[in-house]
Design a protein around this nucleic acid. Structure first.
Lengths: 141, 141
DNA sequence: GCGCGGTTTAGAATTATTCTAATTCTCACT
DNA sequence: AGTGAGAATTAGAATAATTCTAAACCGCGC
């Protein structure tokens, strides 16, 4: 299941499963996010979608993103004082923010560690999601 | 060492230790952040500082915050599409973002878990800091 | 005491995001 | 296949957060 090969039917079905109307705009927004393993901003997504849907507006991109995030089809990542970025990787993972290049890398963590994170909250706190971001320098190789 | 009792001399010294000029503006910004265990935004900090330093400008607050974050005297917390918040708690901890109220709670985690987080990065990734944020609902009691 | 360089100030500028109101589309129901 | 209700989209304006700019200011080493 290469992301590049996500086709109309698959995308549509994914959206329907979330009880959202599978509009062309939503479909293409989701498609361009899944197509690359990077973490584009709303603006970048807007640019990519425009290539296929020239009349789409930025507001629609924001609407679609909000919908997709709510569905859990994508995640959003917030870095210090920078535009929100969107992440296509639904597999539970952490992020590494390279302060030198500004790039974000996905980092897989041992399943037991992720499991442990879910358990450590004090009573009364019920976490729906966890954001784990490392910040630093990545080796230049 | 109650935070409320941080005095001029202490604050000054803290700043000097970081090789920054201990200006009144920086001192008061740091003081108001340390004075409360909440997570104020730049605007909120601006308002609090103004009470003591009526001529301070918002730009200066941003400058001071940037300086203080760089020194490691405070931390910044980024939540989805919301203004950046600043955290006075230097002790290593996680955040719980209550989606119902918008409030942020500090969460202490077992030391071994924090230690583990620092070790799990793949070779070549060197983390200077870690941001761990839980999102969900806190019990209403 | 003087001057250099870092700091502050006010306000403008920029950037990200949201809102608005009008239009268009989707889909369930015929 | 046609229709109507509600949802989605559009362009552009509005808002909000943050950064920039240029001038004035100030602290500190000489």
């Amino acid at each position: 299941m290469k992301p590049e090969t996500e086709n109309h039917a698959t995308l549509c079905q994914r959206l329907k499963e979330c009880d959202v109307r599978p509009t062309p705009q939503r479909e293409v927004v989701l498609k361009v996010i899944l197509a690359k393993r990077d973490h584009p901003t709303a603006d970048e997504i807007f640019a990519r979608v425009k290539a296929q849907l020239p009349t789409i507006s930025l507001a629609t991109v924001y609407n679609c993103l909000e919908t997709l995030v709510q569905c859990g089809l994508i995640r959003q990542v917030n870095l210090e004082r920078a535009p929100t970025r969107y992440c296509p990787n639904l597999h539970e993972h952490a992020h590494f923010h390279d302060e030198a290049t500004g790039q974000i890398h996905d980092v897989d963590l041992p399943p037991d560690l992720m499991a442990r994170l879910h358990e450590v909250l004090p009573a009364g706190f019920d976490a729906r999601s966890i954001d784990l971001t490392f910040r630093g320098k990545a080796a230049t190789n």
